[in-house]
């Protein structure tokens, strides 16, 4: 995608994008603090640095569209509209969490906003999104499905099965690869023989688009174009969003495998700073106004955590609820 084809958002849309990305950033920083303080158990996977990917895609969707995503999914969930309270309560295993405490950090799900589930098995969410696309296709609803996955997922078998079948069936689904350059602790080039994963689309007869994953307007534009194609019945696309995670793979990983200076280079193109700078240059916001926005978000994040901490855990008698539908 060339710079010319990037649709510039209007001020309101940019404010929304800025708000979403800042919410994800601040929420995830607090989530990491909760885990490091052992206030919540298990592990967590942060997408700090990748906020433009989730926020840009979500902003291009319509009500009725569906999404599946990865265990690095807090950003996807918040971008699509999950509330901070539902997320924080789920993080802590509380009864009022998004999944009533059955899911946790890796399984954020909210049917009411079309979030069909974050998945803790690499790649498993690809065909599940295709099923939502099949429903849309058969019912003629005009809806699409999007599925987020990482660079590592493009090496798993179900990636091949999914892109192939989705293309044969012309399903209205967007395959969105967030290439953050590392599959767990291994750099992409150690596990994958090509630099541009979008090239793989050619094998499935679908467009493969390389997108600047740090520029939310580029992500938004590419998603909108692929979505229009899918809604028109022309089938799926593969979008490769070039991005970077500032933190390690999971809670305990500090990222010692990174090349010296690599993180600093990426910090120069921070997705929030990039949009904020553009807006300040255009006179759409000033630093003081942004600081005010940020302060309000920080307050909302802290309020959601405090609220969630006071919420009750699930009843023990309910341990086997939701295994089967009783009807």
């Amino acid at each position: 995608m060339t710079t010319d084809s990037i649709a510039r958002l209007d001020r309101d849309a940019r404010l929304k994008a800025l708000n979403t990305m800042t919410t994800i950033r601040l929420a995830e920083e607090e989530i990491q603090n909760l885990f490091m303080a052992n206030l919540v158990r298990g592990t967590t996977h942060l997408a700090i640095g990748q906020e433009a990917c989730s926020a840009g895609v979500a902003q291009a969707l319509r009500p009725g569209d569906s999404m599946t995503c990865t265990y690095r999914g807090h950003g996807h969930a918040l971008a699509l509209g999950m509330t901070l309270r539902a997320m924080m309560a789920e993080m802590m295993g509380k009864a009022s969490g998004a999944c009533k405490g059955r899911g946790g950090s890796m399984h954020m799900t909210d049917q009411s906003i079309g979030l069909l589930g974050a998945n803790a098995i690499v790649g498993a969410q690809l065909p599940i999104a295709m099923g939502a696309a099949l429903t849309a296709q058969i019912k003629g609803s005009g809806a699409i499905a999007v599925v987020f996955f990482g660079d590592g997922a493009t090496n798993i078998g179900v990636f091949h099965e999914s892109l192939n079948m989705a293309s044969v069936w012309k399903l209205p689904v967007l395959f969105i690869c967030e290439n953050n350059l590392y599959g767990e602790y291994s750099p992409v080039r150690a596990t994958t023989p090509i630099d541009d994963l979008a090239e793989r689309a050619a094998a499935y007869g679908m467009p493969g688009v390389i997108v600047d994953g740090q520029d939310i307007e580029a992500v938004y534009s590419a998603t909108l174009a692929a979505a229009e194609r899918a809604r028109a019945g022309d089938g799926p696309s593969l979008l490769e969003l070039k991005t970077y995670r500032y933190r390690g793979h999971s809670r305990a990983d500090t990222g010692p495998y990174r090349a010296p200076g690599e993180l600093d280079e990426w910090l120069k193109r921070d997705p929030i700073d990039l949009l904020l700078g553009r807006m300040i240059a255009a006179g759409e916001i000033d630093q003081a106004e942004y600081d005010e926005m940020r302060g309000a978000i920080e307050k909302a994040v802290v309020e959601a955590i405090e609220w969630a901490q006071a919420e009750p855990f699930p009843e023990l008698e309910a341990a086997d609820d939701y295994v089967y539908y009783p009807g």
Binding site: L116, P127, M130, T135, A136, G157, E161, W169
Partner: peptide, 28 residues
Amino acid sequence: AERVRDTPISEQAIIGTALGAAITGLRP
């Protein structure tokens, strides 16, 4: 052809797609 389909030899995609359809309103 809309409701009855041949698939590629792709068992994971078959079941995953059926699951996604099942949770969004079809009965596969």
